[in-house]
């Protein structure tokens, strides 16, 4: 007896929404990037689950591309955080109001 597909969808939806809420409620920009990683992992779980249930390996190939984008996002994002910290000496998002002043 295999696990139904909807259980995986439920899990990935929950993880994705946790990531969305994390982006909205955290002030530390590093943890916001970690929440984006949560969302990317939720989509990866979906891809692999559908790939297994439809016996199509293309879903697993797409996880690779998602992984590439995640790695690029982390590299550029952390570089931006370092530049921000150097310019502003703060990594809290509500301190970054340069365009509002």
């Amino acid at each position: 007896m295999t696990v139904p597909l909807s259980y995986y969808l439920l899990l990935s939806g929950f993880v994705f929404l946790t990531g969305v809420v994390g982006v909205l409620i955290r002030r530390n920009i590093i943890v916001i990037l970690l929440s984006v990683e949560l969302m990317l992992n939720a989509t990866n779980i979906n891809f692999v689950a559908f790939s297994e249930y439809f016996h199509n390996v293309a879903g697993q190939v797409f996880v690779f591309f998602a992984l590439t984008v995640a790695a690029a996002e982390v590299a550029v994002g952390l570089a931006i955080i370092i530049a921000l910290h150097r310019a502003n000496s703060s990594i809290y998002v509500d301190d970054l109001n340069l365009l509002k002043r």
Binding site: T18, L24, I25, R27
Partner: peptide, 12 residues
């Protein structure tokens, strides 16, 4: 946390 915690929690 950020000030928009209630709105975000409700949305989630």
């Amino acid at each position: 946390y950020h000030d928009q915690l209630p709105v975000a929690g409700l949305l989630g």
